[in-house]
């Protein structure tokens, strides 16, 4: 398993469109992608899980990837979040 911390920059946090883009990209990853937010453990491939977690702007999350392509997947996900998730 590999992991890295990243801060959510989107002004209204992870909701609506950004959440959707994150889920779609995570869905393409072969490894399992988990977001640790405070005490919560969130399935990044689930739009329902992400939206229900209501991750606010400026929060730090930890991304964990585990699987054969974990290195590449983690890099992809971190870059996507840092780029602002299409916003």
């Amino acid at each position: 398993m590999v992991s890295q911390k990243v801060t959510i920059k989107n002004p209204s946090g992870l909701h609506a469109r950004p959440a959707s883009i994150l889920t779609q990209t995570a869905g393409k990853c072969k490894s399992d992608v988990i977001i640790i937010y405070g005490e919560k453990k969130i399935q990044a491939k689930s739009i329902l899980n992400i939206m229900a977690a209501a991750i606010k702007s400026g929060s730090e999350i930890e991304l964990q990837c585990s699987g054969e392509t974990e290195e590449q997947d983690l890099k992809t996900m971190i870059e996507l979040i840092e780029s602002g998730l299409g916003e």
């Binding site: 779609q24 491939k45 739009i47 329902l48």
Partner: peptide
């Protein structure tokens, strides 16, 4: 399209 994402949700 948003409904489709939810219907396809893995956690659901």
């Amino acid at each position: 399209a948003a409904h489709l994402e939810i219907a396809s949700d893995i956690v659901l």
